[in-house]
Simulated assay, not measured.
Amino acid sequence: MHTQEYPGSGLSTNDVQDGAALLRKFITELEESVESIEAIGDLYGSRTLADLLYLQSAIVNRSYIDHYPGESSVMTIVGSLPSAKTWQSFIKVENQ
């Protein structure tokens, strides 16, 4: 199968398609786990909500986010999802 680079990203079209599929799965799991996305901000704060948005980008780009446990509860939320191990692979836990 021939693949080409996705313009400006350094990713092949297959990588982008795979990242998009992973992102759809993540969003579905996240939405099914909470009453609303707004509730995440209410319960865990804006830093956790921001980290979840950054995590979406990391999933698509096959990178990671830095997680500071004292500042965000992103690992608590991600750890409760059915594909937790997959999502945790996009999170680098930092020591404070």
Rank of each mutant, 00 (worst) to 15 (best):
S57D: 06
L43C: 03
G41I: 04
V78Q: 03
I65P: 01
A20F: 14
S12M: 10
F26T: 02
M75F: 05
D42Y: 13
T28Y: 13
Q88S: 05
I65H: 01
I37W: 11
A21S: 08
L11D: 06
G19V: 02
S33C: 13
L30F: 05
T3N: 06
L22S: 09
K92C: 00
H67I: 02
Y64I: 00
N61K: 05
A50R: 13
K25W: 02
K92Q: 05
E38Y: 06
S57F: 01
L23F: 10
S80F: 01
I59F: 06
D42T: 04
V16R: 09
M1H: 13
Y54H: 04
T48F: 07
S33E: 07
N95V: 07
E94S: 07
G41K: 07
Y54V: 00
N61R: 05
L55I: 03
R47G: 01
T86Q: 13
P7A: 08
A58F: 03
A20D: 11
A20K: 05
Y6A: 14
Q96L: 12
H2Q: 13
G45M: 08
S36L: 08
L53F: 01
V78D: 02
I65E: 02
V34M: 11
Y64T: 03
T76S: 07
N14V: 15
T3W: 14
T28F: 13
Q88L: 15
D15K: 10
E94Y: 00
S83V: 10
P82A: 05
S89N: 03
T28H: 12
S57P: 00
N14R: 05
G8T: 08
K92P: 00
T86W: 02
A84K: 09
E32M: 11
E32A: 15
T48S: 10
V34K: 06
W87M: 07
Q17K: 11
F90R: 07
G41C: 00
G19D: 02
Q17N: 09
T3M: 06
V60F: 10
E5I: 15
S89I: 00
S57W: 03
A50G: 04
R47M: 09
A39H: 13
D42A: 14
P82E: 02
V74A: 12
A21P: 01
D42C: 02
Q17Y: 04
T28P: 01
A58N: 03
I37E: 08
K25R: 10
N95E: 15
G79P: 05
M1N: 12
K92R: 14
